[in-house]
């Protein structure tokens, strides 16, 4: 891995990710963008609010990027998550990888987002018309 970008930001600019992952040694770039969906189990979401334990989140994101680079031959890895209030359709997370051939970056991209959702200390609160819910908090 020649470059790694791991960040927590207020706002995600999806237009910068191609340039960040672009690399002379790479023949493939794969990117996943997670966005705010309007309906959760039939209920209309007004907005989402994300908060994080930033110091630990960055450490965990760093581990995920390094693990991915051990599993696949990657040139650049990016993991960027937004915090704060997000409206429907706004991007909240971007993960991506570039590699010589497409298999590595496709597989790595899935690993990056799946592992982030399991281990990185970021919490999402769903705001509905008349209630708020911390996602996954209760069985």
């Amino acid at each position: 891995m020649s470059k790694k970008i791991v960040a927590i930001v207020d706002r995600i600019d999806t237009s910068q990710v191609f340039t960040e992952l672009s690399d002379a040694q790479s023949g493939g770039i794969c990117v996943f963008v997670g966005t705010v969906r309007e309906f959760t189990q039939g209920e209309e979401v007004v907005s989402l609010e994300f908060e994080t334990y930033q110091k630990m989140a960055l450490k965990e994101m760093d581990k995920i990027a390094l693990d991915a680079a051990k599993k696949w031959n990657l040139n650049i890895v990016i993991i960027r998550h937004a915090v704060g209030l997000k409206k429907v359709e706004e991007p909240v997370v971007v993960v991506g990888a570039s590699s010589a051939h497409r298999d590595a970056c496709f597989e790595a991209c899935r690993y990056l987002i799946d592992t982030l959702k399991e281990t990185v200390p970021i919490w999402k609160k769903e705001m509905f018309e008349n209630k708020t819910v911390w996602v996954s908090a209760h069985p």
């Binding site: 994300f50 959702k117 990185v120 908090a137």
Partner: peptide
């Protein structure tokens, strides 16, 4: 020391 309730990023 920090308490980490179920995470839900992404």
């Amino acid at each position: 020391i920090a308490i980490i309730p179920p995470v839900s990023g992404g």
